[in-house]
Design a protein around this nucleic acid. Sequence first.
DNA 1: CTGAAAGCGCTAACAT
DNA 2: ATGTTAGCGCTTTCAG
Lengths: 361, 361
Amino acid sequence: MKAPNKRSATTISDIARLSGVSKRTVSRVLNHSPKVGGETRDKVQKVIDELRFKPNLQARGLAARRSYFLGMIYDNPDALYIDEVQRGVLSVCREFGYELVVHPCDRASDTLTAEAIAFVDRSKLDGVIVLPPVSEDNDLAGALGKDDVPYVRLAAIALDTADHVVVSNERSAVAAMAEYLVELGHRRIGYVAGPEGRKSTRERLEGFCEALAKHGCSPCEEMIQRGAYSFESGRVCGKALLEMTPPPTAIFASNDEMAAGVIVAAQDMGLRVPEDVSVAGFDDSALATRIRPSLTTIRRPVREMARLATAKLIAAIDGREAEARMGIFLDPELVVRDSTRPLRAAAESRKASAQGRRKGS
Amino acid sequence: MKAPNKRSATTISDIARLSGVSKRTVSRVLNHSPKVGGETRDKVQKVIDELRFKPNLQARGLAARRSYFLGMIYDNPDALYIDEVQRGVLSVCREFGYELVVHPCDRASDTLTAEAIAFVDRSKLDGVIVLPPVSEDNDLAGALGKDDVPYVRLAAIALDTADHVVVSNERSAVAAMAEYLVELGHRRIGYVAGPEGRKSTRERLEGFCEALAKHGCSPCEEMIQRGAYSFESGRVCGKALLEMTPPPTAIFASNDEMAAGVIVAAQDMGLRVPEDVSVAGFDDSALATRIRPSLTTIRRPVREMARLATAKLIAAIDGREAEARMGIFLDPELVVRDSTRPLRAAAESRKASAQGRRKGS
DNA sequence: CTGAAAGCGCTAACAT
DNA sequence: ATGTTAGCGCTTTCAG
């Protein structure tokens, strides 16, 4: 026999009795209803504070049809990204008194949508945040919409109406990277793409090539390798690119994992980075500062996106339509470190590189 | 005005009516009560299946005083570790129909315990899993116990009764590492410790030194540097160790982040790893295979620990005492990669290293 | 502005 | 083995 649980014995009835009003009135002050007299409110609030009364969320939820639970749906190999989002989401959750229930899933599964809906229904979630790359799944989004579940998607493009998406402008970010490399004097630039079929993969690729084209760079089509956003695939693609004749003088991998793989591939071939070939990534993951040379990359404002998405979601739940509808677009930022350098410096660099290295910013 | 929510319209009463029994009976088959006739059970179950009826967790929780929500409390800079645990926990949660609510917190905060308790109470959690290093906080554990919250701690030592902890035997793991390095011929071995005040820090340090002592290695006290489990602190400590005369021929850093820092420190000083100095880490994080040389390290069975902890927690919640009380100890495993090598090979290695490298396992 | 009463959907004594 | 009857703790018509 378990001892009776000591948690939260006091109920709204206690408060009502002790403050000499009805439950209804207590409920009103609890929900900040405007129609309670100032005096009554204070009187009730005092009792609430004294008894440290916290309303029972289950009961409240059952009666009011809301749970004060938000869900986070994701299928992402990148734990760092998830963690970052989670912290952003939670910071806003705390502000508004919500809790967060997590739901990792398998994007490839054909029961993905059904399971996600079951998850939301079962837990009576008030709303969900969907992370990339599952966020690109229109099927899922459609099902959520049809089920009247408030949701917000994190994405690289505006793939839904403004109330359902927070986007980081990856196209312009990779364009900035392309321009940066061109400015360094690079013309033969390799590209390690993500797997086909993802919108963000295409977005990054197109943004990059477009920017190159604008600068009169020959089309990079032949120098595009298709990876899988994994370290190992980066190695393979990097090797393939570097074995071309002539090899590229710079390689942009569309995430840091693959960029790390490219660097290792180069080093395995006896090439030095960045002296012989510049390498850049995307994500600004922890990896970027841990490897040598430290990695030039692109940083998305992940936590901020998560915060804004959550605020937007709660606004939708609370019916604050104006706020919920506001379009949100954020710009990633180019982070220059040691893995890229001007092309013309290549020749002179051999000596200099023996001396010492810059600190990874 | 929001449209009425389409989710889960059918209730237990519908099922009762349609299958011609009372609500109580439906409730019984829902909860797998043994005292329902086989025929009735089938009849009811059929209706349940046909209507795809899912009981409302809030209502169920309100009535039964359980929420089918588990909590995960952590304060850990290592997102990979958290993610791994989370996946382990969730795999068991799914099996038993639980959901997971996350609660990152600040171990240094003096409201840590109060906030954790508030979190549990508010969400009416059925139990919580506490991750290291917060899991070492006896204050928190005590408060959970006093509040009758079932909890299980993940830890490096048995810091609680068997029903409240799942431990990975880190002492024996680091001992194995020490023996491995000694077998390689190393005698001057540096140690990069974690911050003071953590039990796992001491556990690893003592286990390592003890094993060295057993092999007649001179006490390593002078060669112990105190880091902070961060990459940067690993660099600093590594530099300090390598500037000693004579320098250590091997360095064990008590996590991978710091080991990566040590390697960079060595490389910055013009030393080669492992030719000039062997370096090993602890965690087998993603980093271990991404950096060059790939890192010899120690792998804890994190996901398995998480699974077992969750199973134990649910056993406790369900009152299966025998299972809940079972002591669980798991052994980490030594993972040998490219960052360590025999001492005597140092001289001959210079030529060989130019040729090529082994693949990171 | 406030109160009485009726649920929200489920479980849990206590019969039968 | 099954049904009856109360609640769980809160919100919400609907009167006053």
